[in-house]
Simulated scan of single mutants.
Amino acid sequence: MKIMHEQLSFQGNNSFNIKWDDFPHFTFPWHFHSEFELVYVIQSFGRRFVADHTENFSNGDLVLIGPNLPHYWKNDEVFHKNDPDYKVNAIVVHFPADFFEQQLESYPEFLAIKKLLKRAARGIQFPKTTTSRLDKKLRQLLKLSGMELTLAFLSLLNELAQEKDWKQLASESYQPDLKNWTGTRMDKVMHLVNTNYRQQIKLDDIATEIGMNASAFSRYFKEKTGKSFIRFINEMRIGYACKLLQENRMNIADIGFESGFNNLSNFNRCFKSIVAQSPQHYRKHFLEKHF
Rank of each mutant, 00 (worst) to 15 (best):
S155E: 15
E235R: 12
K202E: 15
R122V: 08
L154V: 10
L141C: 05
I233D: 01
Q199A: 08
R139F: 08
I124F: 05
D205G: 00
K137A: 11
N180S: 11
A170P: 06
K115L: 12
L141R: 01
Y174W: 14
G183Y: 07
G226V: 06
L160A: 08
C242N: 13
S132C: 07
S173A: 12
L154P: 04
R119L: 12
R198G: 00
Y220E: 07
D205I: 10
D187L: 08
R122Y: 11
I233C: 05
C242Q: 13
E172Q: 13
S155M: 11
R119V: 06
V193H: 02
T182W: 13
A152P: 09
G146L: 02
K114N: 14
I124E: 06
F232T: 02
W166T: 15
A112V: 04
T129F: 06
P176W: 00
L169Q: 02
K188P: 02
L192Q: 03
R219Q: 14
I210R: 03
G183P: 10
L192S: 04
D177I: 11
E209M: 06
L160Y: 06
P108R: 10
D187H: 14
A161N: 00
S132V: 10
G239V: 04
F217C: 01
G123M: 06
R185W: 03
K227H: 09
S106N: 11
A207Y: 02
Q168S: 15
L157P: 01
H191Q: 14
S145R: 14
S132I: 10
T195N: 15
A214I: 00
L156G: 10
S155V: 08
F110S: 12
G211L: 01
M236I: 04
Y220K: 06
F229D: 01
L178G: 01
L104Y: 07
G211Y: 04
A152V: 03
M212C: 03
A120W: 09
K167E: 13
E148F: 02
K114A: 14
S106H: 08
D165N: 14
A214C: 02
F153Y: 05
M236P: 02
L151A: 13
T208L: 08
D204S: 14
E163Y: 08
P108I: 06
Q103H: 15
A170Y: 03
F110P: 03
D204P: 04
K179T: 13
R185G: 01
Q175E: 15
P127H: 09
M147D: 10
A170G: 04
A112S: 15
L169N: 05
H191M: 11
E163F: 11
L116Q: 04
E223S: 09
T131H: 04
W181L: 00
S106G: 07
I233F: 05
L111Q: 14
E209T: 05
E105N: 14
I206D: 00
K164T: 15
R231M: 13
S171K: 01
E223I: 09
L104G: 07
M212K: 04
K222Q: 11
E148Y: 13
N234L: 06
P108M: 11
S145K: 11
K128T: 09
M212F: 01
V193I: 14
E148A: 14
F232R: 02
A121L: 13
A161L: 09
I201F: 00
M212S: 02
M147E: 08
S173N: 12
Q200K: 12
E172R: 13
